[in-house]
Design a protein around this nucleic acid. Sequence first.
DNA 1: GGTTCCGTTAGGGTG
DNA 2: CACCCTAGCGGAACC
Lengths: 215, 215
Amino acid sequence: MRILIADCTVIYTGRGDTKLKHAKRLIMLKKDGTIAIHHDKGVKPLNYMSGGGTFIETLKSDGSTVWVVENRKENLTIHITQVWSDTETDVDENNSELIRDGTEKQLQEWLTVNPEALGEGFTVIGKEVITGAGAVDILALNRNSEPVAVEVKRTAMLGAVDQASRYVEALKTQEGYENITGMVAALDVRPNTIKLAEKRNIAWVQIEGYTPSPS
Amino acid sequence: MRILIADCTVIYTGRGDTKLKHAKRLIMLKKDGTIAIHHDKGVKPLNYMSGGGTFIETLKSDGSTVWVVENRKENLTIHITQVWSDTETDVDENNSELIRDGTEKQLQEWLTVNPEALGEGFTVIGKEVITGAGAVDILALNRNSEPVAVEVKRTAMLGAVDQASRYVEALKTQEGYENITGMVAALDVRPNTIKLAEKRNIAWVQIEGYTPSPS
DNA sequence: GGTTCCGTTAGGGTG
DNA sequence: CACCCTAGCGGAACC
C-alpha cells in the first residue's frame, strides 16, 4: 500500500462529475489498484476509484505530477503539485477478511430453523425465491397452509414494505400463489413502517429470541 | 491525521457484530475521531467507527496496546501487538469539500425549469412535498391539470417505482388529489423497471436534454 | 455483463 | 432525536 501526503486537485468523471480544489490530502494507493483521497474527517474518502483500470503517471515540466486512473466508464485525474511524504508498506492480504455476525442472512437462516418466530404454525418452504421483480427472502406457509412472502430485515423501514408488496404482486399471478400474502419480519420495525404495512395488509412481526452467536 | 501500520485484532459491536483476526493492517485515526482499519483492497475500510465517541488507550503488561473507541451504542476495540510505523500529519481542513455535479438534486432543479421534459403541458407545483410516507421529489400537473407525483432519479430501478407508488397511495386520500397518478423520471430507466412501472400504471420518462453544468 | 439487494451502509436534510 | 432519502453509494451474489 502506498500512502502519499500531497497537495493536489482532483477531477472525477463517470457515474457523476466531481472535483476537489487544491488542498493537502492523503492519497491511498492499494495493491489492487484502488485509489482513495482522504481528508481529516469521516469514514469515506472524498474521491476514489476502484481498482482494475489503467494507471498512468505523467511528470510535467513545472515539476508537478499527474495521475490518471481510467477504466471503460470512469476517469480520475489527480494533479499533484507538492509531495510531503510518500511511503510504501506491505500489509497482510491473508487473514484480513471481516467476520460478520448478526447479518440479515444469518437472521434468515435462523428463521428457517425457528419458523414459529414468524407466527404460530408457520413453515418455511423456500429461500431467495425469484419472483421476476426481485427475490423473496423467505417463502413460508401459514397455519392455514397459505403462502406468505416474507421480507426479512434487521431494521425494517418503508422500503421493506415496498419489497414485500412487490413480491406478493409478482407471485400472485403464478399458479398456486393466488392467495399469497406479504409479511415483514425484523428485529426492529419502525412505527411508520408498521403504519404502511397495516395500510397495505402486509403483516409484520418483531422477531423475538434471536441472538447472534457468541464469539 | 494519524496513520499506523500495525499488527492488530479488531472487535466491533453495535449496529452489528464483526471482528478481524490478527494481521498487519493500516489504521487511520482522523482529527474528528473517526477511526478506520484498511487492508490492501477496496475502497471501504474493513472496520471503522465514526468520530464523536470516547477514545481510551491502555498499555498492557505484555507490551501490547488496546484502543477502545466507544459511544452510546457502539464499541470498537483494537488490540495492537506490534507497531511497524506511526506517523502524524496535518492535512487541510478547508477547501477540501467535494464539489458534485449531475446530482439528483440538480436534476430536480433542472426539471422545475424544464417541466416539458416530463411531458407536454406539464407544470411543476411543488418539490419535496411531504406525504406521510416520504417526500415526493416533484409534484406536477399534467396537461389536464391533474396532479402527478414524480420520483426523480439519475438511474431508475425497481425501488423508484415503489417510491412513486407509495407517494400516490399516500396522497390519494388527500383533498384534491383523488385522481393523482405516479411517474418515474430518470436519465436512465431500466427495462425491468419499465415493466414494473407499466404493470402499476406508473408513467415513466427518460429525461432528454439535461447536461451537467460544464466545469 | 446486467440485475438486485445488503450494509456496522455513510452522510445529509428536515421535522 | 428520529425519520427518510441520496450516493460517483461499494460490494457480493446470482442470473
